[in-house]
């Protein structure tokens, strides 16, 4: 065995001595370390010093050795601490589930979810390596995400992954999904704020999201209640996401259920109301009707 190989194995043994409940995808670690090294004075040279000998290892051993080295550097750079700090407040809910960190396939897929590792339950956190360049924001994001998983594991939340989204059409379901994201997120941020933990968005930020998700205005008082820390169970939150079929651009027409940006005027709706009511007894004029449907009842 060469001297270089011996040094490499020594590095690897030190990495293995770290706590096991944090599992980091080698590619994530490699990306994070390469991104973070330039911000840590002298770290790059030190890293290269430790990495150099690994090239002397037999090719089959190199990936594992690099993985261990990068995991070690994630610790040294203080980034593993961000992850642990994010998970720590929810240790009771997470139990023995390891927090597994990996790269998302796309930015939109960032987030935490339940998963399995080594055939045992785990928490899966898809996290953009670049996010770790701003540790405080990363901590807020990770805390928020782990809190979602904590809710999912909390029986009182009643999380059921198979519960369908409200709505009969794809646009309705997509709208409901956006609303659910917003309401659940607001609820979590509210509780984090109550506990003095970092929140993902400001209160104004959540209200802005609420206005976008509910163009006609969110259910009265709901957002404020959530931001104050209220946590309705899963089914109740979903129920608040139903499309109200109001005449707002992009919302489904209550008659044909096609999303529309061309609502009839109040006068047009009123003129056709009696004929519409024959086919739609539960419809009321304030719900509006799209211009094309009004052609049918003109």
């Amino acid at each position: 065995m060469t001297a270089g190989a011996s040094r490499a194995r020594s590095v690897a043994r030190r990495a293995l001595a770290r706590p096991l409940w944090l599992r980091i995808e080698p590619e994530w670690a490699a990306d994070v370390v390469r991104l973070a090294l330039p911000n840590a004075p002298g770290a790059t040279a030190e890293y290269q010093l430790e990495a150099g000998p690994l090239y002397c290892l037999p090719p089959g051993e190199r990936p594992g050795a690099f993985a261990r080295l990068d995991a070690l550097w994630v610790e040294r750079l203080g980034l593993a601490g961000v992850l642990r700090d994010a998970a720590a407040p929810f240790a009771a809910e997470l139990g023995r589930r390891p927090l597994c960190v990996l790269r998302p396939a796309a930015l939109l897929e960032e987030g935490a979810d339940l998963g399995r590792y080594d055939d045992a339950p785990a928490v899966r956190l898809a996290l953009s390596p670049r996010r770790m360049l701003a540790p405080e924001a990363a901590l807020a994001f990770c805390t928020h995400e782990v809190a979602h998983v904590a809710d999912m594991l909390d029986p009182s939340f009643g999380y059921d992954p198979h519960r369908p989204l409200p709505g009969t059409t794809r646009p309705e379901r997509e709208l409901a999904r956006e609303r659910f994201r917003m309401l659940w997120g607001a609820s979590i941020d509210g509780r984090l704020r109550e506990r003095g933990l970092p929140a993902l968005l400001s209160l104004d930020g959540w209200h802005a999201l609420a206005r976008r998700a509910f163009p006609q205005g969110p259910p009265a008082g709901l957002i404020d209640a959530l931001l104050r820390g209220r946590r309705p169970p899963h089914d109740e939150l979903l129920a608040r996401c139903t499309c109200e079929h109001g005449p707002a651009p992009g919302q489904p027409c209550p008659l044909c259920r096609f999303p529309t940006h061309a609502w009839g005027t109040q006068a047009e709706v009123a003129a056709a109301a009696a004929r519409i009511a024959i086919d739609f007894p539960r419809w009321a004029p304030p719900q509006g009707a799209c211009a094309q449907c009004l052609e049918c009842y003109r």
């Binding site: 790269r103 998302p104 396939a105 998963g115 590792y117 055939d119 899966r124």
Partner: peptide, 10 residues
């Protein structure tokens, strides 16, 4: 990775 929500291995 995204396609295997219930199980993954590095």
């Amino acid at each position: 990775l995204a396609g295997a929500p219930q199980g993954f291995a590095f």
